[in-house]
Simulated assay, not measured.
Amino acid sequence: MPLTSQILRYTAFSADPAGGNPAGVVLDASALDDSGMLEIAADLGYSETAFLTPDGTLRFFSPKAEVAFCGHATVATAVALAEHGAGPGDYVFKTPAGEIPVSVREVDGELRATLTSVQPHVKEIAEADLAEALAALDWPARDLDENLPPRIAFAGNNHLVIGAATRERLADLSYDFDRLKQLMERLELTTVQLAYRAGESVFHVRDPFPIGGVVEDPATGAAAVAFGAYARELGLVEEESVLTLHQGEDMGRPGVLTVTLKAGDSRVRVSGTAVALSA
């Protein structure tokens, strides 16, 4: 498998360099130790940078710390591999969260990657913890969508899902960074996924990410697969469904994440394009 040790820059879940979620990618990180990877991630300043070694191990670092799983950086890595000599095909990455199969196919002239999550699960959040999250967000309870009940969803890492009653509520995001970060550290959350349902299978989402050192993540593949598990677990969608998640619009970096649920398979898939960015 052709590899390169240079630092690549991609944006995932968009074919437009101005959209999606930027990620750093190092296809051969065999010469780097943990401090070296963290230094590169901090210098790049993206929400995540992915580091691959020739044995298929894939690790993710935010500017602040290592993260067990990152969807958009996985998609970026798979597309980067395809573009740097490996070509479209099927890969299996060994991540701290478990093995993640990824397929890369050319669709309408664009490379599109689909990753399959680890086994997901969904659990309730304590009332006091939810109250603290809402206080940190400055969201009154009346602004929540009662049809999207708050839950903690896992598909590689934990995400607190909170439903907004209106698109306007979702668009108005100004939160207490340190307060939300402290809650997320205590509950071991990676992001808070704020969601607005725009149609039967269409959602708009936003993901505060203070634990990674950034205010908001533009397109969050890990949260997308967790959200798919949440939607299925609560009976919000059919067991066999394709969901479209729009993210990044309120940040000026629009992206589209396609979440696929298959009957008889509890794992969740998320698909999207990725495109190289100039240094």
Rank of each mutant, 00 (worst) to 15 (best):
F209P: 05
Y230E: 03
Y230Q: 06
L183E: 01
S174F: 09
D176N: 11
M251D: 09
P208H: 02
V192A: 09
A219L: 05
M251K: 10
V237W: 08
Q193K: 14
Y196N: 09
A224H: 01
F203M: 13
E200A: 15
E239P: 12
F209Q: 03
P210Y: 05
A198E: 15
A198I: 13
L189A: 01
A223M: 01
V214I: 11
Y196I: 11
I211W: 07
A222Y: 02
S241V: 08
Y175G: 01
A219E: 02
L183I: 08
L261G: 01
P208V: 05
E240Y: 11
Q247E: 06
G199Q: 11
S241R: 13
D176V: 08
L189V: 02
S241L: 04
P218F: 03
A223W: 02
T260G: 11
Q193A: 13
I211T: 15
F177V: 13
V205L: 13
E188A: 15
L173G: 05
D207F: 00
S241W: 08
F177S: 08
E239V: 14
V237N: 04
A222F: 05
R253E: 03
D176Y: 08
G255A: 04
D172F: 00
A229D: 06
A195L: 09
R232N: 10
A226F: 07
T258P: 00
L180D: 03
P210D: 10
G221E: 00
V202Q: 11
Y175F: 04
V202L: 12
D172N: 00
K181F: 07
V205Y: 02
A198L: 14
G213M: 10
D217C: 04
R197M: 08
T190K: 11
S201R: 15
P254I: 01
R179C: 12
D172T: 00
V214M: 03
D207P: 00
L187R: 06
L180Q: 02
L243W: 10
E185P: 11
S174Y: 09
A198K: 15
T260W: 11
V205H: 07
G248C: 06
T244F: 10
V192L: 13
F203L: 12
G213A: 09
L234D: 07
R179A: 15
V205S: 10
T244G: 10
L173Q: 07
M184E: 04
E216S: 01
T190W: 08
E233W: 14
L194P: 00
E188T: 14
L245K: 06
R197D: 07
E200H: 15
R232F: 04
T191A: 07
A226V: 07
